[in-house]
């Protein structure tokens, strides 16, 4: 028998094309489903490979209807990039949690007149959200000598705020990462998990 699911969580994962937002949200959805949740996940791709904004809605609970999270109702906003945190912060519910990777990706348009990358995106996020957890995922990934595990570090960070057993996460990571990289990904996950305490 699976445990009875009562918990309902809306997680919005945002970033820039190529950062691994979609893979991270697929892994989160898979872990939630294995833990017995109903799951809906929604993203729009097409421009994802070309440096565009990527957002993925993941909703888990006893029964999920809409694949989209209403604005202001995300329990957790997981941001792979600082300016993207600011773009999507209005999706976070009052009292919700914002996890922000410290990476900044300045789009080429910032080189043109009339556009500029925000001076301090994190400060802007803090103005609108009470609970902001910065995570230096690149630094953690560098400590593991593998720059490609950034998305799994961030997955670890978000896992701390969800009721999904560690064994389930481990199984999902093993299944979804390239062969032979499960140990480093599991380490990345654990480091991310411990980095996201307040």
């Amino acid at each position: 028998m699976k445990p009875l699911i009562k918990d309902q969580k809306n997680i919005l994962i945002v970033g820039v094309g190529g950062q691994g937002v979609l893979l991270a949200s697929e892994m989160l959805a898979a872990a939630a489903a294995q833990a017995g949740y109903d799951v809906k996940q929604s993203e729009v791709h097409g421009m994802a490979q070309r440096g565009g904004v990527v957002s993925s809605h993941v909703r888990i609970g006893p029964s999920v209807q809409s694949p989209l999270i209403p604005a202001g109702q995300a329990d957790i906003l997981l941001c792979f990039e600082q300016a993207e945190a600011l773009r999507w912060v209005h999706f976070c519910r009052p009292g919700g949690t914002v996890i922000v990777n410290l990476q900044k990706l300045v789009p080429p348009i910032a080189l043109m007149k009339g556009h500029s990358y925000p001076e301090d995106p994190l400060a802007g996020v803090r103005r609108r959200a009470a609970r902001v957890i910065p995570v230096d995922a690149a630094k953690i990934a560098a400590s593991l000598e593998n720059s490609r595990v950034v998305n799994v570090v961030l997955l670890g960070a978000v896992s701390r705020h969800l009721d999904i057993p560690p064994a389930v996460w481990e199984k999902v990571i093993e299944k979804r990462v390239p062969p032979g990289t499960a140990p480093v990904n599991n380490q990345a996950f654990k480091k991310g998990r411990s980095a996201s305490s307040l």
Binding site: G51, G52, P70, A71, R87, V89, P107, A110, H115, R128
Partner: peptide, 18 residues
């Protein structure tokens, strides 16, 4: 209905050639 929060104006990221 809950008020729908307004987004922050943030620099756009139009797609570009790879």
């Amino acid at each position: 209905s809950r008020p729908v929060p307004e987004p922050e104006p943030v620099i756009p990221r139009p797609p570009v050639f790879c």
